[in-house]
């Protein structure tokens, strides 16, 4: 087993055909997909509200954050996982859920290409190779309101 520095470790996720990596220190919990209640008038990437640990939790569509088509259906128990993660850089930290199809593993990645803040809400920061997979590296702290 290779010891990995915390700064280099990512949680690899799959949303549809896309793979992405979240910095491990931004991830609070991986749970089986939470029940999402749709919120009328919400943006497409906001699937709705869920309850996690007795608290209301907004859940975002990871695929749409990556620029992919929506892979999760709101209002229903879907197969997959919900990644509870800290989003933005506010204090106290704000918690949100990311709906993904699968949480693959925790792996140390070396970013092969930095893209700057791109993608919806500017959270895509680069790309990396996980084995033979190309993964998109997200930085949830880069959340922008736009």
């Amino acid at each position: 087993m290779t010891e990995m520095a915390d700064a280099e470790r990512y949680l690899l996720l799959r949303a549809g055909d896309a793979f992405c990596a979240l910095p491990l220190q931004q991830v609070r919990r991986v749970v089986r997909a939470l029940t999402i209640h749709a919120l009328p008038g919400a943006a497409p990437e906001l699937l709705g509200l869920a309850e996690f640990a007795g608290e209301p939790l907004p859940v975002l569509d990871l695929g749409m954050l990556l620029g992919e088509a929506s892979s999760a259906a709101a209002g229903s128990q879907v197969a997959g996982v919900t990644v509870v993660a800290r989003i933005g850089d506010s204090e106290p930290p704000e918690i949100a859920g990311l709906a993904a199809d699968e949480a693959l593993e925790i792996s140390a990645l070396e970013m092969t290409r930095g893209t700057g803040a791109s993608g919806r809400h500017g959270m895509v920061v680069g790309e990396a190779l996980a084995g033979e997979r190309h993964v998109t590296v997200l930085d949830l702290a880069a959340w922008k309101a736009a």
Binding site: H37, L49, A50, E51, P58, G88, E94, A96
Partner: peptide, 24 residues
């Protein structure tokens, strides 16, 4: 929170949980 304020255009006093179900 920022996410809801960003992704939901409506205004509300806040969020709550009742009997394990979130409510606005």
């Amino acid at each position: 929170g920022a996410v809801l304020r960003t992704c939901w255009t409506e205004s509300a006093r806040g969020l709550a949980v009742h009997a394990g179900e979130p409510c606005v």
